[in-house]
Amino acid sequence: MIIETAKLNLYYGKFQALKNINLQIKRNLITGIIGPSGCGKSTLLRVFNRMNDLIENVRITGSVFFDKEDIYSPLYDIIMLRKRIGMVFQRPNAFPLSVFDNIAYGPRVWGMNDKMVLNEIVERSLTAVDLFNDLKDRLKTSALALSAEKQQRLCIARLLAVEPEVLLMDEPCSALDPIATGKIEELMQELKKRYTIIIVTHNMQQAARIADEVGFMLLGELIEFDSAKKIFTNPRDKRTFDYISGRFG
């Protein structure tokens, strides 16, 4: 168990976006979070690296444990948390810097300024997302000149450069075409060997293809959480069944 929530509630002002969420995420698995638009998937994901802290008027009750420690306890080191739990966003958000500086960004934030080491990190991270051969002669060009898929890969590489333990991915393929999506999914299977991945997706086929365990959310509640096989073939809850058989959402 790497992440665990207990009686988690989240409010945006008066609006309750997460309702009594209890879930357990296992190490080195891909956990998929599915559910219709607005059910709180992104909100839940952003609880894990405390990105919701950036939004005003957010209130959280209950607890979230990462590696047995409550990340919402007052003394918890958020900066360290965000190094250990990295995030890939819905739209590729490569920085308007060079390819090299994008990857080196995280290590530099963490105080690494040795050029040799940075070179190594950049090569290793780009290789991990299968971009190195492609970009090795273009490390100085702007990352914004790359295609959307490559930018998303770059964002993943940028994350790997800080050596996280968990990768949070919020609909990482929604801005990509099916071929690019396939490639990113392959990459995720590869990354699973070394990282724990939590992926939010609208796309049930995608969840079925890549996730080991799946949580189904509806209106802020976690309706069902089980192995992907169980969720997609024999769900316990009628609402899950309705969703996966395409009745709503």
Binding site: F95, Y105, G106
Partner: peptide, 21 residues
């Protein structure tokens, strides 16, 4: 805003985000 978020998500402080990004 997505740039800021990307930077914070890598563990950067506000100040680092301002200067580096």
């Amino acid at each position: 805003k997505t740039y800021r978020e990307g930077s914070f998500a890598l563990g950067a402080t506000k100040w680092q985000t301002v200067v580096m990004l």
